[in-house]
Design a protein around this nucleic acid. Structure first.
Lengths: 137, 137
DNA sequence: GTGGATGCAAACCATTTGCACGCCA
DNA sequence: TGGCGTGCAAATGGTTTGCATCCAC
């Protein structure tokens, strides 16, 4: 289940309406959301200002609760960490994001680590294409 | 070889010192370069202003001559298209970029296309880690 | 009560655009 | 010569920061 209050306290973050609302939204979302989407979807009563939204998202990312990724469209996307590892494909016309189940990257990451001598911390795979809807028009 | 003048003319772009200098720099570079790096490396005499640099890079990208990618550090990187397909790993401390030879993505792209119904146009693979040098400190 | 959390406005910064001038074809 | 290319300065847009106020603990 989702004990977001404990999660916040464990990370020395106070429990506030805004933080809970953001965590619940991202918990219920199947795909990463960008800042504007989160802002629009959070209940207006519990809605922090845009400023606070950015601050909260950064805190939660630094705490390792969220995963923060910059997509090729120039926007920051957030998702709850710890969910099943996934990659996404984004439509270059309408911006629709769909998850992709397979991740063939793990072995690749290991090879790359040996090849380059880097300690790999993270990886980003982004596919760009045209979604079924946009193909029609 | 590198007949950049012809390449420009074929794309209805006039041959100018700045464009040639940028193309030669990217041709000689083994890794993608960001805007600031390109600006600093181009010979001052042939150096367009920052404004023109951006404009040239966008034109060349739109013409399909360059590949333009937004990395997780928030900067745009450019490389000559048509070179052997490669991915890169970037150091989260110093920003050093190293190429990775293998690309296991092709089959993955096909699977993903079938799975999601998207027509895949492009893919980005970005590994983030600590380079050998930064591991020492 | 106190330090973290919030909101507003202003700052940031890479990138883009408007406009007048300059140069390639 | 005509139109693309250039440079300067100003605008843009997503994100961050300063500072005064507010609220969780």
């Amino acid at each position: 289940m989702k004990d977001f209050e404990k999660l916040l306290r464990d990370n020395n973050l106070k429990v506030t309406k805004g933080r809970i609302a953001i965590l619940e939204l991202l918990y219920s979302s199947k795909i990463p959301m960008n800042t504007e989407e989160i802002f629009n979807y959070v209940d207006k009563d519990e809605l922090p200002s845009f400023t606070s939204l950015y601050r909260i998202l950064n805190q939660l990312s630094e705490a390792g609760i969220l995963e923060k990724n910059l997509y090729q469209n120039g926007l920051l996307y957030y998702e709850l960490k710890g969910k099943k590892h996934r990659h996404y494909i984004i439509c270059s016309k309408c911006g629709k994001i769909s998850p992709i189940e397979h991740c063939p990257i793990s072995e690749f990451v290991e090879e790359a680590s040996i090849e380059t001598g880097y300690v790999v911390e993270d990886h980003v795979v982004e596919l760009i294409g045209i979604c079924p809807n946009c193909q029609k028009s």
